[in-house]
Design a binder for these strands. Structure first.
Lengths: 193, 193, 193, 193
DNA sequence: TATGAATGAGGGTTCATTCAT
DNA sequence: TATGAATGAACCCTCATTCAT
């Protein structure tokens, strides 16, 4: 049954989002799912393996949800590019609210077991941003003076800051078009000479 | 002996920064300090109490290190205000690198026991930023359109993003004047119409 | 299907011989046989029952393979008697190498559940040796001074010592005629005045 | 406190001797000693580490208790040599009855974790026996025809057989001089042409 | 103030066994 | 007869905290 594995991951995500990785016990998860402890270990080798599966899941969501080529095709200036990118990103996050919270939180925290995975996630993000950055520079949308390092800080910083507040506040309408527009606007201004 | 308490906090900060709160054992801390386990509990009621003391310490550093009135007095436009504020902030963080790492990480993570404290820290920061925001608006440095929510996102997001990368990368020259200038520049642009 | 039961026992013996009773999981056995876990329990009430069946099997091998009356009929002095007995014994063991290893090992080890069975096995062996001992004494092949206790120690000790080394070393030609002759020779000397 | 460690080892040996390694729980041991579970782990890293310590202990007993040079000095023919050697060996075993049982049993059983240690023990025994064998051959006490392999089988087999029965039967007077004399006698006869 | 041996609740994991299909 | 997902008791081990010295 493939569903059971999903069920466990869903329950785990919810609890992890609420209590964090360390404060979540296997007992909590299996109770939430309504299965016995042993059953958990039919689907995951360990608590750690479960978490790694969650990281993988989020990576997949991002990989599937963010297609830079499409964004490029649809955009014709910095503002529209940023807007589309942010809209896509927010859609992924809003569609996986708890998972996003979990990954965001634990990636900042420290855990030897996951550090490697989170580094890979960050590298992938850096790659994506680098591609975007090169595109924007080539098109003349941003100036040569702009350095990638700060391009990254501005993008990642502002978005993560918003995520952290919005997701955790459990607001209903996370990311309506107004938020998207505003976010895009601020980022665009920061990146324009 | 007040020093012994400081000694413990210093050792704890160093280890927390490296291994995180949950992976740090009291045994690690007392070994680093060179005292017995029992001694630890003469100075701190519990591991939790130690961490709360660290949060308090960081709050004090910030409260002492950031004096908005002085910044206001020294600045005469948006750029100079932001620059001074950021320089002050970076000075505090660079001067307490490990503590900053610890607080930054654990504040994003979740722990029922500290959630309240971190909320207070965030409120204090919000107050400070609000004060700054009001000042800048009154002076006409930023436009009425600007809403505080995004003012906060831009400020906090960009700075925390930089902190996270710079502090953890263990770069030697964390925050030289060039970084300060650049950071101020990007933030200023984001906040200008 | 009687064969399925045999199949399980054969697979179990092989794994028990390699990993020991406690380190062998039902999962290992059913995987080796290529059946489902549930199927195992159609043929054996429990892991313990499986092992008891193996003990029984070895008892049968020995009972069928060692016929003292025949040995008596074929022998005409101590040396020939011992030689035939040992040849027969070694033939049984070499023909059921893994089973012999398993029984030998676990009989020395302790397990409440099997202690009774192993005691019966030992009693049967003691009976056989006693019969042999009486015969040899009657025939005047060994002297009255010889006490049965040591007769047993010499026989059982030397043979088990050889078994333990030879079986486990996985030598190809376990028990050729030379080994038989030598073993018989040493035992015979020990038992002769 | 060095005594506490000894206390745990003593209790463990007694229970291991009775129930075997796998059927002995840490809970059994700490209950016997009258300490809490956590205390056990102050003295031993794990159950496995405890057992390794027991193996080490037995190796030390043997190393201290069997001094071939002294035995050589005291003996003037095969019989006296064997007798002294056996007396010394039996003294060690009788003086550490339970430990001897435990080691004897588990060395025959299989456990990946200890296999290496038991191989070392066997090598040491083989060394000792080889030394004895060479000495006896040089002195002309045993004939050149005698091969070491069977010398080992006779010695080790007979003694272990006796040990297994005598120790486990919990007879009071394990190894009086009569047993020693008899054992020596049988072994000597087996090894004489 | 300082010690460090002792505690024991609690967590992750294993695995023989069951049972609905 | 055959399956294999599900079970849960039981086990090893950790670690924050205590307390007699």
């Amino acid at each position: 049954m493939r569903e059971r594995r999903e069920e466990i991951m869903d329950a785990a995500v919810e609890i992890f989002a609420c209590k964090g990785y360390y404060n979540t016990k296997i007992a909590d998860i299996v109770e939430a799912v309504g299965i016995a402890k042993g059953t958990f270990y039919l689907y995951f080798k360990s608590k750690k393996a479960l978490f790694l599966a969650l990281i993988k899941k989020q990576r997949n969501f991002i990989e599937e949800g963010i297609n830079l080529e499409k964004i490029v095709a649809r955009s014709d200036d910095l503002k529209s590019f940023v807007k589309i990118l942010i809209r896509d990103a927010f859609n992924i996050y809003a569609g996986n609210r708890d998972l996003t919270i979990v990954i965001l939180r634990e990636s900042v925290s420290v855990n030897e077991d996951f550090v490697g995975e989170f580094e890979i996630m960050d590298q992938e993000r850096t790659e994506r941003l680098k591609t975007a950055y090169e595109y924007l520079k080539e098109e003349g949308y941003i100036d040569l003076e702009n350095d990638f390092e700060f391009f990254y800080y501005v993008f990642v910083g502002i978005i993560e800051s918003i995520l952290l507040r919005k997701l955790i506040m459990k607001e209903q309408e996370l990311f309506d078009e107004e938020i998207v527009a505003k976010t895009a606007n601020y980022i665009e201004k920061a990146l324009t000479i």
